[in-house]
Amino acid sequence: MRVLAAMSGGVDSAVAAARAVEAGHDVVGVHLALSRQPGTVRTGARGCCTIEDAMDARRAATMLGIPFYVWDFSERFQLDVVDDVVAEYAAGRTPNPCLRCNERIKFAALLERALALGFDAVATGHYASIVTDAAGNRELHRAAAWAKDQSYVLGVLTAEQLAHAMFPLGATPSKDEVRAEAARRGLTVAAKPDSHDICFIPDGDTRGWLAERVGAEEGAILDQSGARIGTHRGAHAFTVGQRRGLDVRVPAPDGRPRFVLEVRPRTNEVVVGPKAALAVAELAGSRISWAGLPLVDAAEGFDCDVQVRAHGDPVPATAAVRDGELVIRPDAPLDGVAPGQSAVLYRGTRVLGQCTIDRTISAVPARVE
């Protein structure tokens, strides 16, 4: 099988490519240049897509004896991921850039080009598994190592994309084993730190980055009654459930901390209140996709587990598609769910599908502080 291995310059993608070669596939490595102005070196473990990362990927490909190319996807990445992130924050929503990158870049733009060039599959270093059922349909499942599981950010993949996806690390029990394997293979990235945070904000200053693109106009912090109790320096810097960074000058009646309950970009206001007010009894969203075959009982309702953060815990729930929305009711309230996040549904280890959250219904009635 002809396999295009997406090589980020990290240890996971290098070992994934190595395993694809070892399995006897005809493998070609490719590094995606996603930044229009890539940095020369990484800042510790922050970011990716630097010139250094491209060089690390090239060295790994050379060690594996496979052809290697760098493809410039910076324009597509800017339009489909970076601009989307800015627009979502400007609208008072909380996006997941990694999920959008997988959806629109790695398994849309990259896969489209790979198929056009005659490749059968794209291999990545994600920790997730693909299982083929008795009828030959492919399903997306959690990785063996739940601590490293990345199925949440892959929940947007469709049946067609899963048909051409390969995740060689899915059954690996730990990241330590991957690093040890890389060292045995002589790959220089064996001890390279993992990247974290938003890759296109390498210094980690998301608030400052957004201020340059969305603006940072002073506005009001309101309590649930609508009374002004503080001031902020830009509503875009806040997300539902946030506690730190609030300039609140009026103590709560019970003396307890306040949390962000709502972000209002049109009026540049942030509403805060007690932690109990973060509890969500129902959430609903659009942009629905199924990771494999759509569920036949989607309209009638079905049991599942819902996960609303990449490293969050799944919660038992019921869900149904109604009037173009995926409506989800967790058995126990969820805390701090923000519009713009993705709700990924599971049944056991299997990913069923996902939606982008548009609205929520509180589990407790609003009260005046």
Rank of each mutant, 00 (worst) to 15 (best):
V178E: 00
A291D: 13
I198T: 03
G9K: 11
D72L: 15
G353K: 03
V153H: 06
L115V: 12
A57H: 07
E325V: 03
V41W: 11
D12I: 05
A180S: 09
R264D: 15
L79C: 08
H196Q: 06
S13A: 14
G301L: 13
R207C: 04
V122E: 00
G10E: 05
L111M: 13
E218W: 13
D305H: 10
A332C: 10
V81T: 12
V260C: 02
A220W: 09
P265Y: 10
T124I: 14
H311Q: 05
M7S: 04
L334Q: 04
A310N: 14
V240S: 00
L295R: 12
S8I: 10
G215D: 06
A16S: 14
R258L: 08
E112I: 02
G230A: 06
R59P: 01
M166N: 02
F238H: 08
A338V: 06
A20L: 07
W290S: 03
G24P: 04
G155K: 02
R185Y: 08
G186V: 12
G65A: 12
E22I: 08
T158L: 08
E88P: 01
R19T: 11
A276P: 01
I66N: 02
Q341I: 06
D203M: 04
P339Q: 07
V280A: 02
M166K: 02
P251I: 11
R19V: 08
P97T: 12
V189Q: 05
A291H: 07
E282P: 06
R184W: 09
P97L: 12
Q307H: 06
A165V: 05
T158D: 07
C98H: 04
A190W: 15
G10C: 05
G92H: 01
P257D: 14
D335L: 14
P97A: 11
V344N: 00
R142S: 07
C355L: 09
G312N: 11
T206V: 04
V122A: 10
E282D: 07
V11M: 07
V272A: 00
L278Q: 07
L278Y: 11
R93W: 03
A281I: 09
N268S: 13
P316Q: 08
E369G: 11
P294F: 12
A332Y: 13
G340A: 07
D331V: 06
G312L: 10
R309H: 12
V327F: 00
A298M: 15
D254M: 12
C304L: 11
L64T: 14
A16F: 13
R243L: 05
A135E: 12
R93H: 09
R142G: 03
A114L: 14
A279Y: 04
A180F: 06
V153S: 07
R329L: 10
E177V: 11
E103P: 07
E262A: 14
V41T: 14
E160F: 09
A90E: 13
R138P: 09
A159Q: 09
S13Y: 01
P265F: 05
